[in-house]
Design a protein around this nucleic acid. Structure first.
Length: 560
RNA sequence: GCGCCCAUAGCUCAGCUGGAUAGAGUGACAGACUUCGAAUCUGGAGGUCGCAGGUUCGAAUCCUGCUGGGCGCGCCA
Protein backbone atom coordinates (compact mmCIF):
# COMPACT_ATOMS: atom_id res chain seq x y z
CA UNK A 1 0.00 0.00 0.00
CA UNK A 2 1.47 3.30 -1.03
CA UNK A 3 1.61 6.31 1.25
CA UNK A 4 -0.94 8.20 -0.81
CA UNK A 5 -3.34 5.27 -1.05
CA UNK A 6 -3.09 4.90 2.72
CA UNK A 7 -4.08 8.47 3.33
CA UNK A 8 -6.82 8.27 0.71
CA UNK A 9 -8.31 5.16 2.25
CA UNK A 10 -8.32 6.76 5.65
CA UNK A 11 -10.11 9.85 4.40
CA UNK A 12 -12.58 7.79 2.39
CA UNK A 13 -13.39 5.72 5.43
CA UNK A 14 -14.05 8.86 7.45
CA UNK A 15 -16.18 10.34 4.68
CA UNK A 16 -18.31 7.23 4.57
CA UNK A 17 -18.60 7.17 8.34
CA UNK A 18 -19.80 10.76 8.29
CA UNK A 19 -22.31 10.02 5.56
CA UNK A 20 -23.81 7.06 7.38
CA UNK A 21 -23.89 8.97 10.64
CA UNK A 22 -25.91 11.66 8.88
CA UNK A 23 -28.23 9.03 7.51
CA UNK A 24 -28.85 7.53 10.92
CA UNK A 25 -29.73 10.87 12.37
CA UNK A 26 -32.08 11.52 9.49
CA UNK A 27 -30.14 14.43 8.04
CA UNK A 28 -29.41 12.72 4.75
CA UNK A 29 -31.50 10.41 2.58
CA UNK A 30 -29.97 7.78 0.29
CA UNK A 31 -30.03 4.05 -0.34
CA UNK A 32 -26.54 3.31 -1.61
CA UNK A 33 -23.26 5.16 -1.58
CA UNK A 34 -22.56 6.75 -4.98
CA UNK A 35 -19.45 5.90 -6.97
CA UNK A 36 -17.61 8.99 -5.82
CA UNK A 37 -13.95 9.91 -6.17
CA UNK A 38 -11.38 11.28 -3.79
CA UNK A 39 -8.66 12.91 -5.83
CA UNK A 40 -5.77 15.28 -5.72
CA UNK A 41 -7.08 18.57 -7.13
CA UNK A 42 -5.21 20.16 -9.97
CA UNK A 43 -5.24 23.52 -8.23
CA UNK A 44 -3.24 23.70 -5.04
CA UNK A 45 -5.69 26.16 -3.49
CA UNK A 46 -8.30 23.40 -3.55
CA UNK A 47 -6.43 21.49 -0.91
CA UNK A 48 -4.49 18.23 -0.84
CA UNK A 49 -7.47 16.01 -1.54
CA UNK A 50 -11.03 16.69 -2.69
CA UNK A 51 -14.20 14.68 -3.14
CA UNK A 52 -17.26 15.08 -5.31
CA UNK A 53 -19.53 12.91 -3.15
CA UNK A 54 -21.95 15.69 -2.17
CA UNK A 55 -22.69 16.53 -5.81
CA UNK A 56 -23.34 12.92 -6.68
CA UNK A 57 -25.78 12.54 -3.79
CA UNK A 58 -27.79 15.61 -4.60
CA UNK A 59 -30.38 13.96 -6.82
CA UNK A 60 -31.32 11.13 -4.51
CA UNK A 61 -31.16 13.22 -1.35
CA UNK A 62 -33.19 15.97 -3.02
CA UNK A 63 -30.93 18.56 -1.54
CA UNK A 64 -28.46 21.16 -2.79
CA UNK A 65 -24.93 19.76 -3.10
CA UNK A 66 -23.42 22.43 -0.88
CA UNK A 67 -26.00 21.68 1.81
CA UNK A 68 -25.10 17.98 1.67
CA UNK A 69 -21.43 18.88 1.88
CA UNK A 70 -22.13 20.89 5.01
CA UNK A 71 -23.89 17.93 6.61
CA UNK A 72 -21.01 15.61 5.75
CA UNK A 73 -18.42 18.01 7.06
CA UNK A 74 -20.31 18.57 10.32
CA UNK A 75 -20.38 14.81 10.88
CA UNK A 76 -16.71 14.36 9.95
CA UNK A 77 -14.25 13.30 12.65
CA UNK A 78 -10.81 14.57 11.75
CA UNK A 79 -9.18 14.05 15.13
CA UNK A 80 -6.15 11.79 14.98
CA UNK A 81 -5.53 12.38 11.28
CA UNK A 82 -3.27 14.67 9.27
CA UNK A 83 -6.31 16.68 8.21
CA UNK A 84 -5.99 20.28 9.32
CA UNK A 85 -8.91 21.92 7.66
CA UNK A 86 -11.96 21.00 5.58
CA UNK A 87 -13.65 23.42 3.23
CA UNK A 88 -16.64 23.37 0.95
CA UNK A 89 -16.02 24.99 -2.40
CA UNK A 90 -17.44 25.54 -5.84
CA UNK A 91 -20.58 23.60 -6.70
CA UNK A 92 -20.15 21.31 -3.69
CA UNK A 93 -16.61 19.96 -3.54
CA UNK A 94 -15.29 19.03 -0.13
CA UNK A 95 -11.64 19.98 0.08
CA UNK A 96 -9.24 18.51 2.62
CA UNK A 97 -6.16 20.43 3.69
CA UNK A 98 -3.51 18.35 5.37
CA UNK A 99 -0.61 19.11 7.66
CA UNK A 100 2.16 18.63 5.14
CA UNK A 101 4.16 16.50 7.58
CA UNK A 102 2.55 13.38 6.20
CA UNK A 103 4.88 13.42 3.21
CA UNK A 104 8.14 13.08 5.15
CA UNK A 105 7.49 9.40 5.70
CA UNK A 106 8.62 8.75 2.15
CA UNK A 107 12.23 9.89 2.51
CA UNK A 108 13.48 7.15 4.86
CA UNK A 109 11.54 4.72 2.67
CA UNK A 110 13.22 5.80 -0.57
CA UNK A 111 16.67 5.73 1.00
CA UNK A 112 16.03 2.26 2.36
CA UNK A 113 14.54 0.79 -0.81
CA UNK A 114 16.92 2.42 -3.27
CA UNK A 115 16.59 0.84 -6.72
CA UNK A 116 13.36 -0.82 -5.62
CA UNK A 117 11.58 2.38 -4.67
CA UNK A 118 8.54 2.78 -6.92
CA UNK A 119 7.96 -0.94 -7.29
CA UNK A 120 4.72 -2.33 -5.95
CA UNK A 121 2.69 -5.52 -5.73
CA UNK A 122 -0.25 -4.11 -7.61
CA UNK A 123 -0.10 -6.73 -10.38
CA UNK A 124 0.06 -9.54 -7.80
CA UNK A 125 2.37 -11.61 -9.98
CA UNK A 126 -0.14 -11.96 -12.80
CA UNK A 127 1.49 -13.50 -15.85
CA UNK A 128 1.57 -10.98 -18.68
CA UNK A 129 3.22 -11.19 -22.06
CA UNK A 130 4.23 -8.23 -24.15
CA UNK A 131 4.92 -9.09 -27.78
CA UNK A 132 6.50 -6.27 -29.70
CA UNK A 133 8.55 -5.37 -32.77
CA UNK A 134 8.20 -8.86 -34.30
CA UNK A 135 9.64 -7.35 -37.44
CA UNK A 136 9.98 -9.12 -40.72
CA UNK A 137 13.27 -11.00 -40.21
CA UNK A 138 14.25 -10.65 -43.83
CA UNK A 139 15.28 -7.05 -43.32
CA UNK A 140 16.77 -4.67 -40.80
CA UNK A 141 14.95 -2.60 -38.18
CA UNK A 142 13.57 0.77 -39.21
CA UNK A 143 11.98 3.77 -37.48
CA UNK A 144 8.61 2.15 -36.97
CA UNK A 145 10.23 -0.84 -35.34
CA UNK A 146 12.21 1.56 -33.19
CA UNK A 147 9.06 3.13 -31.86
CA UNK A 148 7.58 -0.27 -31.13
CA UNK A 149 10.77 -1.36 -29.42
CA UNK A 150 10.94 1.69 -27.17
CA UNK A 151 7.26 1.50 -26.37
CA UNK A 152 7.07 -2.23 -25.77
CA UNK A 153 10.17 -2.42 -23.67
CA UNK A 154 9.11 0.49 -21.47
CA UNK A 155 5.62 -0.89 -21.08
CA UNK A 156 7.09 -4.21 -20.04
CA UNK A 157 9.35 -2.47 -17.53
CA UNK A 158 6.45 -0.50 -16.12
CA UNK A 159 4.32 -3.62 -15.76
CA UNK A 160 7.22 -5.39 -14.11
CA UNK A 161 7.67 -2.54 -11.64
CA UNK A 162 3.95 -2.61 -10.91
CA UNK A 163 4.20 -6.20 -9.79
CA UNK A 164 3.32 -8.21 -12.89
CA UNK A 165 5.23 -11.26 -14.04
CA UNK A 166 6.26 -10.00 -17.46
CA UNK A 167 7.63 -11.84 -20.49
CA UNK A 168 9.02 -9.91 -23.46
CA UNK A 169 8.58 -11.80 -26.68
CA UNK A 170 9.61 -11.44 -30.31
CA UNK A 171 7.64 -13.42 -32.90
CA UNK A 172 9.81 -14.34 -35.86
CA UNK A 173 7.86 -14.54 -39.12
CA UNK A 174 10.16 -17.12 -40.61
CA UNK A 175 7.50 -18.84 -42.70
CA UNK A 176 5.08 -18.03 -45.47
CA UNK A 177 5.04 -15.97 -48.63
CA UNK A 178 7.39 -13.35 -47.34
CA UNK A 179 10.08 -15.92 -46.88
CA UNK A 180 9.46 -17.31 -50.35
CA UNK A 181 10.07 -13.90 -51.82
CA UNK A 182 13.09 -13.49 -49.61
CA UNK A 183 14.44 -16.80 -50.85
CA UNK A 184 14.04 -15.87 -54.48
CA UNK A 185 15.70 -12.52 -53.91
CA UNK A 186 18.62 -14.15 -52.16
CA UNK A 187 19.00 -16.72 -54.90
CA UNK A 188 18.97 -14.06 -57.60
CA UNK A 189 21.62 -11.98 -55.84
CA UNK A 190 23.71 -15.05 -55.16
CA UNK A 191 23.71 -16.12 -58.77
CA UNK A 192 24.22 -12.58 -60.03
CA UNK A 193 27.26 -12.17 -57.82
CA UNK A 194 28.63 -15.38 -59.26
CA UNK A 195 28.30 -13.97 -62.76
CA UNK A 196 24.97 -15.45 -63.86
CA UNK A 197 22.69 -13.10 -65.73
CA UNK A 198 19.48 -14.02 -63.92
CA UNK A 199 16.54 -11.64 -63.55
CA UNK A 200 15.73 -10.21 -60.15
CA UNK A 201 12.17 -10.97 -58.99
CA UNK A 202 9.97 -7.96 -59.52
CA UNK A 203 8.41 -8.10 -56.06
CA UNK A 204 11.68 -9.03 -54.39
CA UNK A 205 13.72 -7.27 -51.74
CA UNK A 206 15.88 -4.69 -53.41
CA UNK A 207 17.92 -3.69 -50.38
CA UNK A 208 21.69 -3.53 -50.47
CA UNK A 209 21.80 -5.62 -47.29
CA UNK A 210 20.79 -8.75 -49.17
CA UNK A 211 23.62 -8.28 -51.61
CA UNK A 212 26.04 -7.83 -48.72
CA UNK A 213 24.79 -10.97 -47.07
CA UNK A 214 25.29 -13.01 -50.20
CA UNK A 215 28.72 -11.48 -50.81
CA UNK A 216 29.77 -12.56 -47.35
CA UNK A 217 28.47 -16.05 -47.99
CA UNK A 218 30.45 -16.32 -51.20
CA UNK A 219 33.58 -15.01 -49.49
CA UNK A 220 33.20 -17.68 -46.86
CA UNK A 221 31.87 -20.67 -48.77
CA UNK A 222 32.48 -19.94 -52.44
CA UNK A 223 30.01 -21.14 -55.05
CA UNK A 224 29.11 -24.46 -53.43
CA UNK A 225 25.36 -23.82 -53.76
CA UNK A 226 25.49 -22.79 -57.38
CA UNK A 227 25.07 -26.21 -58.90
CA UNK A 228 22.48 -27.28 -56.35
CA UNK A 229 18.82 -27.92 -57.10
CA UNK A 230 16.85 -24.68 -56.86
CA UNK A 231 14.55 -25.55 -54.01
CA UNK A 232 17.31 -27.02 -51.91
CA UNK A 233 19.54 -24.09 -52.69
CA UNK A 234 16.93 -21.57 -51.60
CA UNK A 235 16.42 -23.47 -48.40
CA UNK A 236 20.11 -23.21 -47.59
CA UNK A 237 20.32 -19.58 -48.53
CA UNK A 238 17.29 -18.65 -46.42
CA UNK A 239 18.55 -20.54 -43.43
CA UNK A 240 21.91 -18.85 -43.72
CA UNK A 241 20.51 -15.38 -44.28
CA UNK A 242 17.84 -15.60 -41.60
CA UNK A 243 20.35 -16.63 -39.01
CA UNK A 244 22.47 -13.65 -39.86
CA UNK A 245 19.49 -11.28 -40.02
CA UNK A 246 18.03 -12.37 -36.74
CA UNK A 247 21.39 -12.16 -35.03
CA UNK A 248 21.71 -8.61 -36.32
CA UNK A 249 18.21 -7.70 -35.25
CA UNK A 250 18.87 -9.04 -31.79
CA UNK A 251 22.13 -7.17 -31.56
CA UNK A 252 20.55 -3.92 -32.72
CA UNK A 253 17.79 -4.25 -30.16
CA UNK A 254 20.30 -4.97 -27.42
CA UNK A 255 22.22 -1.85 -28.45
CA UNK A 256 18.91 -0.07 -28.03
CA UNK A 257 18.63 -1.54 -24.54
CA UNK A 258 15.93 -4.07 -25.37
CA UNK A 259 16.33 -7.66 -24.23
CA UNK A 260 13.78 -10.37 -24.96
CA UNK A 261 12.91 -13.36 -22.84
CA UNK A 262 11.60 -15.38 -25.77
CA UNK A 263 12.29 -15.43 -29.50
CA UNK A 264 9.43 -17.40 -30.96
CA UNK A 265 9.68 -18.91 -34.42
CA UNK A 266 6.54 -19.11 -36.54
CA UNK A 267 8.01 -22.08 -38.38
CA UNK A 268 7.96 -24.15 -35.19
CA UNK A 269 4.18 -23.83 -35.13
CA UNK A 270 4.00 -25.46 -38.55
CA UNK A 271 6.61 -28.08 -37.69
CA UNK A 272 4.94 -29.09 -34.45
CA UNK A 273 1.56 -29.47 -36.10
CA UNK A 274 -0.01 -26.76 -33.93
CA UNK A 275 -1.25 -24.87 -36.97
CA UNK A 276 -2.95 -27.95 -38.44
CA UNK A 277 -4.29 -28.80 -35.01
CA UNK A 278 -5.88 -25.43 -34.41
CA UNK A 279 -7.47 -25.51 -37.86
CA UNK A 280 -9.05 -28.89 -37.24
CA UNK A 281 -10.22 -27.70 -33.85
CA UNK A 282 -11.99 -24.75 -35.43
CA UNK A 283 -13.34 -26.99 -38.16
CA UNK A 284 -14.76 -29.37 -35.60
CA UNK A 285 -16.53 -26.51 -33.86
CA UNK A 286 -18.09 -25.44 -37.14
CA UNK A 287 -16.22 -22.16 -37.55
CA UNK A 288 -14.62 -23.16 -40.83
CA UNK A 289 -16.14 -23.75 -44.25
CA UNK A 290 -14.84 -24.44 -47.73
CA UNK A 291 -15.28 -22.10 -50.63
CA UNK A 292 -13.55 -22.09 -54.02
CA UNK A 293 -11.05 -24.64 -52.78
CA UNK A 294 -9.90 -22.62 -49.78
CA UNK A 295 -10.77 -22.92 -46.10
CA UNK A 296 -12.46 -19.89 -44.60
CA UNK A 297 -12.83 -18.93 -40.97
CA UNK A 298 -16.23 -17.43 -40.27
CA UNK A 299 -14.87 -14.41 -38.41
CA UNK A 300 -17.94 -12.32 -39.19
CA UNK A 301 -19.69 -14.33 -36.49
CA UNK A 302 -17.36 -12.63 -34.06
CA UNK A 303 -17.82 -9.11 -35.30
CA UNK A 304 -15.29 -8.98 -38.10
CA UNK A 305 -16.20 -7.26 -41.36
CA UNK A 306 -15.59 -10.24 -43.58
CA UNK A 307 -14.51 -13.84 -43.37
CA UNK A 308 -10.87 -14.74 -43.62
CA UNK A 309 -8.97 -17.46 -45.42
CA UNK A 310 -6.97 -19.79 -43.18
CA UNK A 311 -5.86 -22.33 -45.77
CA UNK A 312 -5.34 -21.32 -49.38
CA UNK A 313 -6.62 -23.43 -52.24
CA UNK A 314 -3.02 -24.57 -52.80
CA UNK A 315 -3.10 -26.12 -49.33
CA UNK A 316 -0.76 -23.62 -47.69
CA UNK A 317 -2.01 -22.07 -44.44
CA UNK A 318 -2.09 -18.27 -44.23
CA UNK A 319 -0.28 -16.05 -41.79
CA UNK A 320 -3.57 -15.69 -39.95
CA UNK A 321 -3.76 -19.44 -39.36
CA UNK A 322 -0.31 -19.42 -37.82
CA UNK A 323 -1.24 -16.40 -35.73
CA UNK A 324 -4.24 -18.22 -34.30
CA UNK A 325 -2.04 -21.15 -33.36
CA UNK A 326 0.47 -18.71 -31.90
CA UNK A 327 -2.09 -17.08 -29.65
CA UNK A 328 -3.42 -20.40 -28.50
CA UNK A 329 0.15 -21.33 -27.70
CA UNK A 330 0.49 -18.14 -25.63
CA UNK A 331 -2.52 -18.96 -23.50
CA UNK A 332 -1.41 -22.54 -23.10
CA UNK A 333 1.81 -21.21 -21.67
CA UNK A 334 -0.23 -19.66 -18.88
CA UNK A 335 -0.34 -15.98 -19.76
CA UNK A 336 -3.43 -14.38 -18.28
CA UNK A 337 -2.98 -11.23 -20.29
CA UNK A 338 -1.38 -10.90 -23.67
CA UNK A 339 -0.41 -7.50 -25.07
CA UNK A 340 0.55 -7.05 -28.71
CA UNK A 341 2.03 -3.87 -30.07
CA UNK A 342 1.12 -3.51 -33.72
CA UNK A 343 1.49 -0.81 -36.30
CA UNK A 344 -1.73 1.04 -37.08
CA UNK A 345 -1.72 -0.51 -40.54
CA UNK A 346 -2.58 -3.82 -38.87
CA UNK A 347 -5.68 -2.61 -37.11
CA UNK A 348 -7.88 -4.65 -39.45
CA UNK A 349 -6.54 -7.78 -37.78
CA UNK A 350 -7.67 -6.95 -34.29
CA UNK A 351 -11.31 -7.98 -34.66
CA UNK A 352 -10.53 -11.25 -36.36
CA UNK A 353 -7.78 -12.12 -33.88
CA UNK A 354 -10.12 -11.48 -30.98
CA UNK A 355 -12.77 -13.51 -32.78
CA UNK A 356 -10.35 -16.39 -33.15
CA UNK A 357 -9.52 -16.24 -29.47
CA UNK A 358 -13.19 -16.36 -28.62
CA UNK A 359 -13.75 -19.26 -30.99
CA UNK A 360 -11.01 -21.16 -29.21
CA UNK A 361 -12.84 -20.68 -25.94
CA UNK A 362 -10.73 -17.93 -24.43
CA UNK A 363 -11.86 -14.49 -23.35
CA UNK A 364 -11.02 -11.91 -26.04
CA UNK A 365 -10.41 -9.43 -23.26
CA UNK A 366 -7.26 -11.37 -22.47
CA UNK A 367 -5.74 -9.93 -25.60
CA UNK A 368 -4.97 -6.23 -25.75
CA UNK A 369 -3.65 -4.81 -28.97
CA UNK A 370 -1.89 -1.49 -28.73
CA UNK A 371 -1.98 0.13 -32.12
CA UNK A 372 0.75 2.64 -32.64
CA UNK A 373 0.56 5.16 -35.40
CA UNK A 374 3.33 4.99 -37.90
CA UNK A 375 6.35 7.23 -37.82
CA UNK A 376 6.78 9.69 -40.63
CA UNK A 377 10.34 10.54 -41.29
CA UNK A 378 11.54 13.93 -42.44
CA UNK A 379 14.91 14.80 -43.80
CA UNK A 380 15.71 18.12 -45.37
CA UNK A 381 12.05 19.05 -45.07
CA UNK A 382 10.99 16.12 -47.22
CA UNK A 383 8.96 13.13 -46.21
CA UNK A 384 10.89 9.92 -46.63
CA UNK A 385 8.69 7.03 -47.60
CA UNK A 386 10.01 4.00 -45.87
CA UNK A 387 9.91 0.69 -47.60
CA UNK A 388 12.02 -2.38 -47.23
CA UNK A 389 11.06 -3.51 -50.67
CA UNK A 390 12.51 -0.48 -52.40
CA UNK A 391 15.37 -0.25 -49.97
CA UNK A 392 14.64 3.31 -48.86
CA UNK A 393 14.58 3.43 -45.10
CA UNK A 394 16.46 4.79 -42.15
CA UNK A 395 17.53 2.00 -39.89
CA UNK A 396 17.44 1.88 -36.12
CA UNK A 397 21.22 1.64 -36.17
CA UNK A 398 21.47 4.84 -38.17
CA UNK A 399 19.01 6.53 -35.83
CA UNK A 400 21.09 5.62 -32.80
CA UNK A 401 24.20 6.92 -34.52
CA UNK A 402 22.53 10.19 -35.38
CA UNK A 403 20.58 11.13 -32.28
CA UNK A 404 21.83 8.69 -29.69
CA UNK A 405 20.08 5.89 -27.89
CA UNK A 406 18.88 7.92 -24.90
CA UNK A 407 17.32 10.69 -26.96
CA UNK A 408 15.71 8.25 -29.36
CA UNK A 409 14.15 6.15 -26.63
CA UNK A 410 12.93 9.12 -24.63
CA UNK A 411 11.49 10.69 -27.73
CA UNK A 412 9.54 7.60 -28.74
CA UNK A 413 8.22 6.88 -25.25
CA UNK A 414 7.28 10.52 -24.67
CA UNK A 415 4.39 10.36 -27.10
CA UNK A 416 1.31 8.27 -26.64
CA UNK A 417 1.12 5.36 -29.09
CA UNK A 418 -1.80 6.79 -31.00
CA UNK A 419 -0.21 10.08 -31.84
CA UNK A 420 1.22 10.29 -35.29
CA UNK A 421 4.87 11.12 -35.15
CA UNK A 422 6.86 13.31 -37.43
CA UNK A 423 10.48 12.54 -36.82
CA UNK A 424 12.65 15.23 -38.31
CA UNK A 425 16.16 13.86 -38.39
CA UNK A 426 17.79 17.21 -39.03
CA UNK A 427 15.93 18.74 -36.13
CA UNK A 428 16.69 15.83 -33.83
CA UNK A 429 20.33 16.24 -34.65
CA UNK A 430 20.61 20.01 -34.47
CA UNK A 431 18.49 20.27 -31.35
CA UNK A 432 20.00 17.42 -29.49
CA UNK A 433 20.97 19.63 -26.56
CA UNK A 434 17.41 20.93 -26.28
CA UNK A 435 15.98 17.46 -26.09
CA UNK A 436 13.95 16.95 -22.92
CA UNK A 437 15.98 13.90 -22.08
CA UNK A 438 18.96 16.13 -21.35
CA UNK A 439 16.90 18.20 -18.96
CA UNK A 440 16.19 15.13 -16.85
CA UNK A 441 19.68 13.74 -17.17
CA UNK A 442 21.13 17.09 -16.22
CA UNK A 443 19.18 17.04 -12.96
CA UNK A 444 20.66 13.64 -12.21
CA UNK A 445 24.18 14.76 -13.02
CA UNK A 446 23.70 17.80 -10.83
CA UNK A 447 22.58 15.63 -7.95
CA UNK A 448 25.60 13.38 -8.36
CA UNK A 449 27.83 16.41 -8.41
CA UNK A 450 26.42 17.68 -5.12
CA UNK A 451 26.77 14.31 -3.46
CA UNK A 452 30.31 14.00 -4.80
CA UNK A 453 31.27 17.36 -3.33
CA UNK A 454 29.66 16.49 -0.02
CA UNK A 455 31.83 13.44 0.13
CA UNK A 456 34.94 15.44 -0.73
CA UNK A 457 34.11 17.84 2.08
CA UNK A 458 33.94 14.90 4.43
CA UNK A 459 30.21 15.07 5.05
CA UNK A 460 28.77 11.65 5.70
CA UNK A 461 25.13 10.88 5.06
CA UNK A 462 23.48 10.02 8.36
CA UNK A 463 20.36 7.94 8.80
CA UNK A 464 17.60 10.41 9.48
CA UNK A 465 14.17 9.60 10.82
CA UNK A 466 10.91 10.93 9.47
CA UNK A 467 10.91 13.60 12.19
CA UNK A 468 14.39 14.82 11.26
CA UNK A 469 13.05 15.79 7.84
CA UNK A 470 10.46 18.16 9.30
CA UNK A 471 13.12 20.83 9.04
CA UNK A 472 12.43 20.87 5.28
CA UNK A 473 9.64 23.39 5.04
CA UNK A 474 10.42 25.47 1.99
CA UNK A 475 7.59 25.13 -0.56
CA UNK A 476 10.04 23.88 -3.15
CA UNK A 477 11.12 21.16 -0.74
CA UNK A 478 7.58 20.11 0.10
CA UNK A 479 6.61 19.99 -3.57
CA UNK A 480 9.62 17.90 -4.45
CA UNK A 481 8.94 15.44 -1.65
CA UNK A 482 5.28 15.30 -2.58
CA UNK A 483 6.30 14.30 -6.11
CA UNK A 484 8.57 11.59 -4.79
CA UNK A 485 5.65 10.22 -2.79
CA UNK A 486 3.73 9.80 -6.04
CA UNK A 487 6.17 7.54 -7.86
CA UNK A 488 4.67 4.13 -6.92
CA UNK A 489 1.15 5.29 -7.78
CA UNK A 490 2.34 6.86 -10.99
CA UNK A 491 3.89 3.57 -12.07
CA UNK A 492 0.70 1.69 -11.22
CA UNK A 493 -1.29 4.25 -13.16
CA UNK A 494 0.98 3.89 -16.20
CA UNK A 495 0.64 0.11 -15.93
CA UNK A 496 -3.15 0.17 -15.57
CA UNK A 497 -3.53 2.42 -18.59
CA UNK A 498 -0.74 0.75 -20.56
CA UNK A 499 0.66 4.24 -20.94
CA UNK A 500 4.43 4.32 -20.48
CA UNK A 501 4.50 7.88 -21.82
CA UNK A 502 3.32 9.00 -18.40
CA UNK A 503 6.72 8.11 -17.04
CA UNK A 504 8.47 10.68 -19.21
CA UNK A 505 6.05 13.29 -17.92
CA UNK A 506 6.81 12.25 -14.38
CA UNK A 507 10.55 12.30 -15.02
CA UNK A 508 10.30 15.81 -16.39
CA UNK A 509 8.20 17.06 -13.46
CA UNK A 510 10.58 15.52 -10.98
CA UNK A 511 13.61 17.07 -12.65
CA UNK A 512 11.88 20.42 -12.81
CA UNK A 513 10.97 20.36 -9.11
CA UNK A 514 14.53 19.46 -8.28
CA UNK A 515 15.89 22.37 -10.33
CA UNK A 516 13.56 24.72 -8.47
CA UNK A 517 14.62 23.30 -5.12
CA UNK A 518 18.23 23.67 -6.18
CA UNK A 519 17.70 27.31 -7.06
CA UNK A 520 15.88 28.14 -3.83
CA UNK A 521 17.75 26.06 -1.28
CA UNK A 522 21.44 25.74 -0.62
CA UNK A 523 22.50 22.23 0.25
CA UNK A 524 26.21 22.15 1.05
CA UNK A 525 26.46 25.47 2.82
CA UNK A 526 23.42 25.04 5.08
CA UNK A 527 23.64 24.43 8.83
CA UNK A 528 24.50 20.80 9.65
CA UNK A 529 20.98 19.60 10.47
CA UNK A 530 19.53 21.30 7.44
CA UNK A 531 22.45 20.20 5.30
CA UNK A 532 21.92 16.56 6.24
CA UNK A 533 18.21 16.69 5.51
CA UNK A 534 18.79 18.38 2.17
CA UNK A 535 21.60 16.04 1.21
CA UNK A 536 19.32 13.09 1.82
CA UNK A 537 16.47 14.73 -0.08
CA UNK A 538 18.93 15.26 -2.94
CA UNK A 539 19.97 11.65 -2.77
CA UNK A 540 16.36 10.43 -2.69
CA UNK A 541 15.55 12.54 -5.72
CA UNK A 542 18.50 11.05 -7.56
CA UNK A 543 17.24 7.56 -6.76
CA UNK A 544 13.82 8.40 -8.16
CA UNK A 545 15.14 9.95 -11.35
CA UNK A 546 17.39 6.97 -11.94
CA UNK A 547 14.56 4.51 -11.30
CA UNK A 548 12.22 6.31 -13.66
CA UNK A 549 14.83 6.62 -16.41
CA UNK A 550 15.49 2.92 -16.07
CA UNK A 551 11.83 2.25 -16.89
CA UNK A 552 12.18 4.33 -20.03
CA UNK A 553 15.47 2.68 -20.96
CA UNK A 554 17.48 5.87 -20.66
CA UNK A 555 20.78 6.16 -18.83
CA UNK A 556 21.24 8.30 -15.72
CA UNK A 557 24.71 9.79 -16.17
CA UNK A 558 26.71 10.99 -13.17
CA UNK A 559 28.52 13.56 -15.29
CA UNK A 560 27.62 15.20 -18.55
C1' G B 1 -18.53 3.49 -49.89
C1' C B 2 -17.55 0.89 -44.96
C1' G B 3 -14.31 0.42 -40.50
C1' C B 4 -10.35 2.11 -36.92
C1' C B 5 -7.19 6.30 -35.08
C1' C B 6 -6.44 11.53 -34.71
C1' A B 7 -7.91 17.12 -34.48
C1' U B 8 -6.13 21.24 -27.70
C1' A B 9 -1.33 27.94 -27.53
C1' G B 10 2.73 30.09 -33.54
C1' C B 11 5.14 24.78 -33.41
C1' U B 12 5.50 19.66 -30.79
C1' C B 13 2.33 17.47 -27.40
C1' A B 14 -0.01 16.28 -21.99
C1' G B 15 -4.76 16.20 -19.83
C1' C B 16 -5.82 9.39 -15.32
C1' U B 17 -12.26 5.98 -14.89
C1' G B 18 -16.60 13.28 -16.75
C1' G B 19 -14.84 17.79 -12.12
C1' A B 20 -13.40 23.72 -9.96
C1' U B 21 -9.68 29.27 -13.52
C1' A B 22 -7.53 23.60 -19.92
C1' G B 23 -1.35 22.47 -18.70
C1' A B 24 4.02 21.50 -20.14
C1' G B 25 7.96 21.94 -23.62
C1' U B 26 9.60 24.88 -27.62
C1' G B 27 9.75 29.75 -30.26
C1' A B 28 9.59 35.16 -29.37
C1' C B 29 9.95 38.96 -25.28
C1' A B 30 11.81 40.77 -20.15
C1' G B 31 14.91 39.48 -15.99
C1' A B 32 18.58 36.22 -12.57
C1' C B 33 25.58 33.61 -12.04
C1' U B 34 31.26 36.98 -5.94
C1' U B 35 27.91 31.13 -3.61
C1' C B 36 26.57 23.42 -4.45
C1' G B 37 26.87 22.37 -12.66
C1' A B 38 23.15 28.97 -16.27
C1' A B 39 22.27 22.04 -20.35
C1' U B 40 19.34 26.02 -14.80
C1' C B 41 15.74 29.44 -12.61
C1' U B 42 11.92 33.68 -12.54
C1' G B 43 8.11 36.65 -15.10
C1' G B 44 4.34 38.11 -18.26
C1' A B 45 2.34 37.24 -23.50
C1' G B 46 -0.01 33.36 -26.35
C1' G B 47 -6.87 29.29 -26.53
C1' U B 48 -14.25 29.70 -30.30
C1' C B 49 -10.15 22.46 -26.89
C1' G B 50 -11.98 21.30 -35.61
C1' C B 51 -17.72 22.67 -36.32
C1' A B 52 -22.96 21.87 -34.68
C1' G B 53 -26.27 19.59 -31.54
C1' G B 54 -27.30 16.18 -27.25
C1' U B 55 -26.67 13.66 -22.19
C1' U B 56 -26.16 16.51 -16.57
C1' C B 57 -25.25 19.85 -11.08
C1' G B 58 -20.63 19.92 -14.45
C1' A B 59 -18.00 17.95 -21.09
C1' A B 60 -11.41 18.80 -24.06
C1' U B 61 -13.24 13.98 -21.97
C1' C B 62 -19.42 10.44 -23.06
C1' C B 63 -23.41 10.11 -27.51
C1' U B 64 -25.03 11.69 -32.69
C1' G B 65 -24.06 14.31 -37.19
C1' C B 66 -20.58 17.14 -40.14
C1' U B 67 -15.56 18.97 -41.82
C1' G B 68 -10.43 17.90 -42.36
C1' G B 69 -5.98 14.43 -41.96
C1' G B 70 -3.69 9.25 -41.25
C1' C B 71 -4.47 4.01 -41.91
C1' G B 72 -7.07 -0.26 -43.43
C1' C B 73 -10.87 -3.07 -46.38
C1' G B 74 -5.86 -9.41 -50.74
C1' C B 75 -6.35 -17.17 -51.17
C1' C B 76 -0.04 -10.53 -48.57
C1' A B 77 2.18 -10.09 -43.85
Amino acid sequence: MSIVKNIENQIKELIEKAVFRAKETGLLLFSALPDYVLEVPREKVHGDFATNIAMLMAKEAKMAPRKIAEIIVSNFEKEGTWIEKIEIAGPGFINFYLDHSWVYEVLPLVLEQGDDYGRSEFGAGKKVQVEFVSANPSGVLHMGNARGAALGDSLASVLDAAGYDVTREFYINDAGNQIEKFAKSLEARYLQLLGDDVPFPEDGYHGQDIIDTMKALIDRQGDKYKAMDGELRREFLVKYALEEKITNIRKTLEDFGVYYDVWFSEQTLHDSGEVAEVISELKKDGHIYEKEGALWFNTTQFGDEKDEVVVRSNGVPTYFAADIAYHKNKFKRGFEQVINIWGADHHGHVARMKGAIKALGYDPEQLTVILMQLVRLFRGGEILRMSKRTGTYVTLNELMEEVGRDAARYFFVMRSPDSQMDFDLDLAKSQSTDNPVFYVQYAHARICSILRQAEEMGYSLPNLSQDDFRILTDPSEIMLIRKIVDLPDEIVSAAKNLAPHRMTGFAHDLASLFHVFYTNCRVLTAEPEMRNARLLLTKATGICIKNVLKLIGVSAPERM
